[in-house]
């Protein structure tokens, strides 16, 4: 695993939210951390390559600019690889996890509208022959401040 030094840690602690919305955000971050803009860019590139950062961008409030649902399937163990591959291949699927439960495959489908989400779900059911449980969000209770990383 990548060893993160103080500069990396400060970038991750300070900028999971409120990335400066200015023309040169990385220069603004660099100034706050006390290094050059090129260092910040290089560090973020390294963290992205290592997979520590998935992207730098927006987390949208669900259902404000598109539609999504959480879906679950009970897949027989011997078919898990095959079914997971079918599911992951959809660009509308953004998370796909195996979980320790009878309902063992969990994924999120997000698209521009509800009809597209429903169409993907129906297609997955038809292609795999396995029922898909549709668990759309009703209410979001979480106050998202980013993740408080315990470095020790």
């Amino acid at each position: 695993m990548l060893v993160l030094d103080d500069i990396d840690r400060r970038l991750l602690d300070l900028y999971q939210r409120d990335l400066p919305l200015v023309a040169r955000p990385f220069a603004a971050m660099a100034e706050a951390v006390g290094v050059g803009e090129d260092i910040v860019l290089a560090r973020l590139a390294r963290l992205s390559e290592a997979g520590v950062i998935s992207r730098i961008g927006a987390v949208f409030r669900p259902h404000r600019c598109g539609h999504s649902t959480l879906a679950a399937m009970a897949v027989p163990a011997e078919r898990l690889e095959e079914v997971a591959a079918v599911v992951s291949a959809y660009p509308q699927v953004n998370h796909n996890y195996q979980r320790d439960h009878t309902l063992n495959l969990w994924f999120v489908i997000a698209a521009a509208d509800a009809a597209e989400v429903a169409a993907v779900m129906t297609e997955i059911k038809d292609r795999t022959g396995i029922a898909v449980l549709d668990l759309p969000l009703i209410e979001d209770f979480h106050i998202d401040l980013g993740f408080d990383i315990r470095w020790s």
């Binding site: 998935s54 598109g66 997971a84 599911v87 996890y97 195996q98 999120v108 997000a110 698209a111 521009a112």
Partner: peptide
């Protein structure tokens, strides 16, 4: 119940591409 993830097949940001 606690449902632990045992394998990650895919993880990326949501895509709201407009047709």
């Amino acid at each position: 119940e606690l449902l632990f993830s045992t394998r990650r097949f895919k993880q990326c940001g949501a895509r709201y591409q407009r047709r």
